[in-house]
C-alpha cells in the first residue's frame, strides 16, 4: 500500500467518523462543557449567569453533608456492583459455556428485562418489597412475622431493586468480556490433573476476570449515577449524588450547585475508570 492510499483511507475513515463525532459533540461534549461552565457560575433564574466563582465547589467541598452523600454514593455503587456481579456471574458463565441450542433464546431471556424501563421495574419492586408487598404478605400469611419487615423505602430496597435492574447490563458486559474463556483450556487443565473446583479457580475465574471487572465498572457507574431507583425505592432516605443533583436542579433550582455536584460525580467516575484500566492492564500483562 502506498502512502497516498493510506492518506486516502484515513480521509474516508474521518468522513465515516464524522456523523458519530458530530452527534457525540452535540449531544455529549457540548452539554458537558456547558455544565462545567455552569458549575463555576452563580445561580440565576432558570440556570446560571455569566460570572466566575468557585463558591459552588467550596459549598460542596466544605460541607460535610456532601462528603457523607459522596460516601453513601460510593457505598451504594460498590454494594450494587458487588451483588450484581456475583449474581450475574453464574448466569453469564452458563450462557457463555453452554452448547445448548437454546443458548440464543436463554441469552435473550437474560437480557430481556432491558426491554422494560428501569422505572417500570422499580415499581415492580415496590409491589414486591412494600409493606403490603408480595414478600411481607406471604410472610404474614404464613404467620412468620407479625409486622411487616421494612424491605423498601430504605437503602436496602433501593439496593435490591438497583441490583436486579442492572443485572442484564452485568450479564451483557460479562458475555462480551469472556472472550478468553475456552472449553479446551478447561479440558487441558483437567488433563493436567485439575478437578472441577481447581479448573474454576485457576482457569475459568482468572480468564473471566476482565469481563467481571468490566461488568463491575459498568454496574458501578450506572448505580452511582442513578437517581430514579434510589428515589423511588429509597423512600427519600437514600441520599446519593444522583438524587442530590436532581433535588438541587429541580426543587431548589440551584443549577450551578447541581452542576458542581455532577462534576464531583464525574470525578468519581473518572477515578474509578482509571482504577479499572490499571486493573485490566495488570490482568493482561
Amino acid at each position: 500500500m502506498t502512502t497516498s492510499d493510506r492518506k486516502g483511507n484515513r480521509g474516508i475513515l474521518l468522513l465515516l467518523l464524522l456523523p458519530g463525532l458530530l452527534a457525540l459533540g452535540v449531544s455529549f461534549v457540548a452539554p458537558l462543557l456547558w455544565l462545567l461552565r455552569a458549575s463555576f457560575s452563580t445561580s440565576a433564574l432558570g440556570g446560571a449567569d455569566g460570572s466566575w466563582t468557585l463558591a459552588n465547589y467550596a459549598d460542596v467541598v466544605l460541607d460535610p453533608f456532601y462528603w457523607r452523600v459522596a460516601g453513601n454514593t460510593l457505598n451504594y455503587g460498590l454494594t450494587v456492583a458487588a451483588f450484581a456481579v456475583v449474581l450475574s456471574y453464574p448466569i453469564a458463565l452458563f450462557l457463555a459455556r453452554t452448547t445448548s441450542r437454546w443458548r440464543g433464546v436463554l441469552t435473550a431471556l437474560a437480557i430481556a428485562p432491558l426491554l422494560t424501563s428501569g422505572v417500570v421495574r422499580t415499581y415492580g419492586w415496590m409491589v414486591i418489597l412494600g409493606d403490603q408487598g408480595v414478600i411481607n404478605g406471604t410472610l404474614q400469611a404464613l404467620s412468620l412475622i407479625q409486622t411487616p419487615i421494612r424491605l423498601s423505602n430504605n437503602f436496602l430496597g433501593a439496593t435490591i431493586a438497583m441490583i436486579e435492574i442492572l443485572m442484564p447490563y452485568a450479564i451483557l458486559a460479562m458475555l462480551s468480556g469472556f472472550g478468553r474463556l475456552n472449553t479446551q483450556l478447561e479440558e487441558a487443565a483437567a488433563m493436567l490433573g485439575a478437578n472441577r473446583l481447581k479448573v474454576f479457580w485457576r482457569i475459568i475465574l482468572p480468564l473471566s476476570l476482565p469481563g467481571v471487572i468490566t461488568a463491575a465498572l459498568l454496574v458501578f457507574v450506572l448505580a452511582i449515577s442513578g437517581f430514579v431507583t434510589p428515589r423511588l425505592m429509597g423512600g427519600g432516605r437514600v441520599f446519593v449524588l444522583g438524587t442530590e443533583v436532581f433535588q438541587e436542579a429541580t426543587v431548589t433550582l440551584n443549577l450551578p450547585l447541581a452542576a458542581a455536584l455532577a462534576m464531583l460525580l464525574l470525578v468519581l467516575f473518572s477515578s474509578v475508570i482509571v482504577i479499572y484500566r490499571r486493573a485490566l492492564r495488570a490482568l493482561e500483562a
Binding site: A188, A190, M191, L192
Partner: peptide
C-alpha cells in the same frame, strides 16, 4: 476414572496454553 485422575498428557490442536 475421571479425566483429572487418568494421568495422561494431551497436546491440543490449538495447544490450549493458559494465556494468563
Amino acid at each position: 476414572i475421571p479425566v483429572h485422575k487418568r494421568n495422561m498428557g494431551m497436546v491440543f490442536q490449538s495447544y490450549a496454553l493458559f494465556p494468563h
